[in-house]
């Protein structure tokens, strides 16, 4: 494979196939932890770590894992990496660990990770899989950071812990759960306006192993594309 296509595996996740804003995967952490920019960043990077690790291992084991039990195998690999990042974060970043709470453990069931395992890592060589994981992870981080920044600036009048001038009008609703839904809706609308694509009609279950059972709630175009 030429070098150019390796680069493409990396960059596609950043904007064009951004897992959160275009693929609509991993909505729960996107909404839950983004009350502060720093939490969004931490959550994004933790997920990136797990994604790169699981893509690496799953790609290495792609010929060993039997088709019939692949889902439990993937879940165990992913949960292993999640436990690892939990330990690391507890040890080195205890504040962030407390702020993320249960959502750190819930990276295990983040559909981006399972989706990439199912759609990419189990079919591709190691290097492209790692780059794919890195790109998707950073795209996720970017989305979370944007969300976190918007909500922190408008909701709390600060950014990354730095407070803005006191005259800046703040609206508490942005840090409430309702604000999370609102900001995400606006960000997705803005992205689809900027990329001149139609906003996705439904939740993307692209590569989700359960897509078949999803009662038509999933958009089918995305899977066809990939």
């Amino acid at each position: 494979m030429a070098e150019k296509s390796y680069l493409k595996e990396f960059t596609k996740g950043l904007i064009k196939e951004n897992p959160t804003l275009v693929g609509l995967l991993g909505m729960c952490p996107t909404l839950a932890v983004t009350t502060q920019a720093v939490n969004g960043l931490g959550m994004g990077l933790a997920t990136t770590f797990v994604l790169v690790g699981s893509n690496l291992v799953i790609s290495l084991l792609r010929k060993v894992i039997p088709q019939t039990v692949k889902l439990p195998c993937y879940i165990v690999i992913i949960a292993g990496f999640v436990t690892l990042i939990e330990f690391l974060m507890h040890g080195f970043l205890p504040d962030l660990y407390d702020a993320l709470g249960t959502f750190l453990s819930l990276i295990t069931v983040n559909c981006i990770i399972l989706g990439r395992a199912e759609m990419f890592a189990c079919k591709n060589k190691v290097l492209p899989s790692v780059l794919d994981g890195l790109g998707m992870g950073l795209g996720f981080t970017l989305a979370l950071f944007t969300m976190g920044s918007l909500r922190e600036i408008f909701g709390a009048g600060s950014w990354m812990g730095l407070s803005l001038p006191e005259t800046f009008p703040t609206m508490t609703i942005f840090v409430l759960p309702a604000g999370g839904f609102f900001v995400l809706g606006c960000v997705i609308a803005a992205v689809s306006k900027l990329t001149k694509k139609k906003a996705p009609a439904g939740v993307g279950c692209a590569g989700c192993p359960n897509a078949a059972a999803c009662g038509g709630g999933c958009s089918t175009e995305k899977e066809a594309e990939a």
Binding site: L24, I173, L176, P177, A178, G179, G180, F181, F182, L184, G185, C186, I188, A189, S192, K193, K198, A199, P200, A201, G202, V203
Partner: peptide, 20 residues
Amino acid sequence: TFKGIPATLIAASIVSLSFS
């Protein structure tokens, strides 16, 4: 621009507001 998921999310925001 808001058709599809953005509008759904904003509706969810209002439902969530009522629960708060």
